[in-house]
């Protein structure tokens, strides 16, 4: 058993566990068939569907000040 643990030690030294990216994408290919959006939505607790805050178009209303109209002649446009 001395030999065995020494053997394990050597393996660990030469062949240590390495970090791999695969583990962070579990089920992406097996369950979701490579559909990243679907996988992301399911693993992140559902995402906003419409992303941008939609702002209605602002259309400024025309305006005249009556006292200004009386004082000045209308400008030709």
């Amino acid at each position: 058993s001395m030999l065995l643990s020494h053997h394990r030690f050597l393996i660990k030294k030469l062949w240590p566990a390495i970090p791999i990216p695969d583990s962070k994408f579990q089920d992406l290919f097996t369950v979701y068939g490579g559909d990243f959006k679907e996988w992301l939505g399911q693993t992140s607790g559902s995402l906003w569907v419409t992303s941008p805050f939609i702002l209605s178009e602002e259309c400024p209303s025309p305006l005249e000040v009556l006292s200004e109209l009386n004082l000045c002649p209308p400008l030709s446009s």
Binding site: I18, I20, P21, D22, F29, G34, D35, F36, S44
Partner: peptide, 26 residues
């Protein structure tokens, strides 16, 4: 070994259907 596993996964990942936006989001 790290480089090899990374390359192998990048190859597999390139088969994914995805967008720049979703990649940034993740």
């Amino acid at each position: 070994r790290i480089r090899f596993r990374f390359k192998r996964f990048i190859q597999q990942f390139s088969q994914c259907r995805t967008t720049v936006r979703d990649l940034k989001l993740k």
